[in-house]
Amino acid sequence: MDRPLATAALLLALLVFAPAGAPAHAQDAAETSPSMQRTARSLYEDGVRAARARRWPEARGAFERSYALYPRPITLMNLAGAQRQTGRLVAASESYRRFLRDASERERRDYGAAIESALGGIDAQIAHATLRIEGLDPGDRVQLDGEALDPRALGTEIALDPGEHRVVIARTEQTLLDHPFTLREGERTEVALEVPRVVARVVVPEPAVVAQTAVAPPVTTEPDLHTEPPSGDDPTPWIVVGVGAGVVAIGVAILVGVLVAEGNGGELPQGSEPPIRL
Rank of each mutant, 00 (worst) to 15 (best):
E222W: 08
I169H: 04
R108H: 08
R52H: 12
T86D: 04
E105D: 12
E157C: 04
A24Y: 03
A245I: 02
G47N: 02
D178G: 10
L119E: 03
T39M: 08
R188G: 13
I254P: 14
I250H: 14
A68G: 11
T39Y: 06
L76T: 04
P275C: 07
E185W: 13
G266A: 11
D46Y: 05
R3V: 09
Q212M: 15
T213K: 15
E194A: 15
R108C: 08
T182F: 09
P217G: 11
Q85W: 08
G265S: 05
R152M: 00
E187N: 15
P34Q: 01
R3K: 12
D178C: 13
T130N: 01
F63G: 01
I169V: 11
L5Q: 12
G265Y: 06
V191A: 05
R108M: 08
Y70N: 09
A249R: 14
A30C: 06
V167H: 07
Q143Y: 12
I254V: 12
Y111G: 06
V48C: 14
P73W: 03
D224G: 08
H179M: 11
D145I: 03
G257H: 09
S272C: 04
G61Q: 00
L69W: 05
D123A: 11
P275A: 08
V209T: 13
V204T: 14
P23S: 09
G251R: 14
E173K: 08
D140Y: 07
E64L: 06
Q212E: 15
M36E: 07
E164H: 15
V167L: 03
L76K: 10
F63D: 00
A82N: 02
P274W: 11
P57Q: 03
G21W: 03
G271Y: 01
W238S: 13
L177N: 12
P274F: 01
T182Y: 05
A127H: 08
M77D: 10
T189N: 03
V202M: 15
